[in-house]
């Protein structure tokens, strides 16, 4: 059992209570966020309006006319104690395969338009990221980005955008700064990177993350036409475990045809995630997590 620092609680005006479990990002901190917010959701407290897990913090929006602020604070502090370091908890979740066309023409065209906002105007985003992280080249970088799975640590920024943290020890984490100045444009379904997080842009729009590729898989569908969206317009949930699979242009076009035909589905399998075995033997545990995906083949 590892030591965990006491959480920091702060009022966000008269309707929000913000809780920072750790200042630094780590899988442990995020897993505690997921565990605490899940337990809080199950309590169904009157006056709690929104429970919003993030990477190493979470917030609650509440109605102080229904639940007294300090009463809510007390409940959250109790939960913090109860969950502790969460080392013995198991989280039922999904493992997902997201196909990625790295160095695709659309993000490449976009990044070329914003070179003046970039740290290294003479290379592409992925060349830059590979170089500053000590990889021999882009191929080795893609092997690392797609080699180990990612834990969905937060959904948000805009509708349905997942932030993902790679399930590897800190000395193997890829770290890349955001653009110097945010772009005004990012293609929909861009696979991006900022800090230690990979993300998938759910909609077209502004963005500051480096752009490495694009996925043909829709992840937000307000019209709810594809089968993956039958229940809800947002695909990702915190705790989803993601394997990025590099694909070529031919495969990308084939998936896109499936999307247009309304038959595309993301390859997904239910799985139970436990923190401690993941920390003790990341590579071995990751291999076991991903094994289930291969039974069903690609999406």
């Amino acid at each position: 059992m590892s030591d965990v620092r006491a959480a920091r609680y702060s009022w966000g005006g008269d309707e929000f209570l913000f809780v920072e479990l750790a200042e630094e990002m780590s899988l442990q901190a995020n897993f505690r966020v997921v565990a605490i917010t899940k337990a809080l959701r199950e309590q169904r407290l009157d006056g709690v309006l929104e429970i919003q897990p993030a990477n190493a913090s979470y917030q609650v929006r509440y109605d102080p006319d229904v639940i007294e602020p300090h009463a809510l604070l007390g409940r959250l502090q109790e939960l913090e104690k109860q969950i502790g370091d969460a080392h013995d908890l198991a989280l039922p979740t999904r493992v997902l395969e997201i196909p990625v066309l790295y160095q695709d023409p659309w993000t490449t065209e976009t990044l070329m338009r914003f070179r003046d906002a970039h740290q290294d105007p003479d290379s592409t985003d992925i060349e830059y990221a590979a170089r500053i992280n000590g990889f021999s080249g882009v191929d080795e970088f893609i092997a690392a980005h797609s080699g180990s799975p990612w834990f969905t640590s937060m959904v948000g920024f805009v509708a349905g955008l997942p932030f993902k943290y790679q399930m590897v020890p800190r000395d193997r984490q890829i770290v890349v700064p955001k653009y110097l100045r945010p772009r005004t444009d990012t293609p929909k379904q861009t696979v991006g990177y900022g800090g230690c997080f990979s993300c998938i842009y759910s909609v077209r729009g502004a963005g500051g993350y480096q752009m490495f590729g694009i996925t043909p898989a829709p992840i937000y569908d307000p019209t709810q036409t594809l089968p993956d969206f039958a229940d809800f317009m947002v695909f990702f949930r915190p705790g989803d475990i993601v394997k990025f699979t590099p694909i070529d242009r031919e495969r990308y076009d084939a998936y896109l045809a499936d999307v247009e035909a309304g038959t595309f589905r993301i390859n997904a399998r239910p799985v139970e995630f436990e923190l401690q075995p993941s920390l003790d033997d990341p590579d071995g545990y990751n291999a076991r997590l991903l094994a289930g995906l291969n039974d069903g083949g690609a999406a």
Binding site: F16, E24, S26, Q52, A54, S57, P177, G194, C196, F197
Partner: peptide, 21 residues
Amino acid sequence: PPFGAGQDPSNIVDAPYPIGS
């Protein structure tokens, strides 16, 4: 800078934003 936050003094590990923040 804490791990995952970014170099700028105004950077934090991405966190939820209250409405009105």
